[in-house]
Design a binder for these strands. Structure first.
Lengths: 217, 217
DNA sequence: ACATGTGAACTGCTTCACAGCG
DNA sequence: CGCTGTGAAGCAGTTCACATGT
């Protein structure tokens, strides 16, 4: 069973993804079985949380024993929708785009980049590992031809809202946005953000408010 | 006043960072004043949330009017600790590292990359915009010499825990980790993660469970 | 009149603690 | 006996609604 018994929170989904990383590492190390305790430790959370997260989708463990590593891996893959391949477009072939394209974990996890577009005429026509870079003016055609399901937006902030609208206009329902801009999209489109500036600024805040090892003592 | 009156949540900090992006855009457009309503709209949240977030740190608005764009920008910069410069090291000069180095928003926001290290002997010695790439074996020395406060870890997953420990050993208290691995660090060290795989997998989950526009009707 | 600032209500995530089962 | 699975309790973050101030 992989039918959630209740509404699933965003954070639960993210943790499942983390558990999967841990499980695959354990799998490579030929570990057969793992406790919620151990999974929690390596995944940066608590044992109770692990059990709660998993229990939403079913009972995958054996009492007194723990979870079978290969079985739980398989179940989480199913839950997250990673037992199929997703067709992904990369919009923007700049530095970030290039880095993403090379990121080995994407393909391993079933995300196949089937289309790349850019505005830079010098890049258009080049082959990136078998994928020909097309011009951004053809964006809609490319997305349709390649039957793209997920678009990664790696374009400058000022361009991203317009790009998002064009992507959405051809029926793409999932976006991963790297620009530091909040996208406005229709309700039925899911957007996730990777905002490195926000993460750095959160660090800045933390440093400010946790002055090194206290000097008042 | 920028003293928080109460415990500040992680999410509040992240939203402040987003508000700041919006405010700076408004500032460039010469907008003088903005309501919580408008800030919320552009920042992807609600008006009440905006007011709550800001009220933790003080009263920056004028009733009946809204918030002064330049004033609020300045206040949020102060709150987030962006009125000073942070000395940042980039550990790992691969694709992701290169992309980060070029990311213009970092420098604009006061994050200055003052050191770069890599394990690849061919890269060592090269100058990246005035910063010489040093060998990873010298990591600790480099961090000390350059008085690094924040380390960006852009190294492969299998290496990142060891790198983190070395970075922490010389007193760096803030890490931004790009590897899909949960880091174990001492309590007084802050770690933020940028995990593109997790974001993509969350999209996958969302797509699975929100089949396009329902076919049962 | 209008938009902020905020206590109070609400919602939902996390933690606890233990019953259930291998 | 050990570890999972889970209702119940606790807590944190969000939303509501209005008093406050300009």
């Amino acid at each position: 069973m992989t039918e959630p018994s209740r509404k699933v929170s965003e954070s639960t989904v993210r943790r499942l993804s983390l558990y999967l990383w841990v499980l695959e590492e354990l799998g490579e190390a030929e570990v057969a079985t793992v406790s919620s305790e151990e999974l929690a430790h390596q995944g940066g959370t608590t044992a109770a949380q692990v059990r709660k997260d998993l229990s939403i989708f079913g009972s995958f463990g054996k009492r007194g024993l723990g979870y079978s590593v290969p079985l739980l891996s398989r179940e989480i893959r199913k839950i997250l929708g990673l037992s199929r391949t997703w067709r992904v477009a990369l919009v923007g072939a700049g530095r970030i785009g290039a880095a993403l394209f090379e990121y080995p974990n994407f393909r391993d996890r079933g995300f196949e980049i089937v289309a790349v577009v850019d505005t830079d005429a010098r890049k258009v026509g080049r082959l990136w590992d078998g994928v020909r870079i097309r011009h951004a003016s053809e964006l809609e055609d490319v997305l349709r031809e390649s039957e793209v399901e997920i678009a990664i937006l790696a374009v400058p902030g000022r361009a991203v809202q317009e790009v998002a609208e064009r992507v959405v206009s051809v029926g793409v329902k999932a976006l991963l946005n790297f620009a530091p801009v909040q996208l406005r999209v229709p309700e039925d489109v899911v957007v996730n953000h990777v905002n490195m500036a926000v993460e750095l600024e959160a660090l800045s805040y933390a440093l400010m408010n946790h002055p090194r090892e206290d000097s008042s003592a």
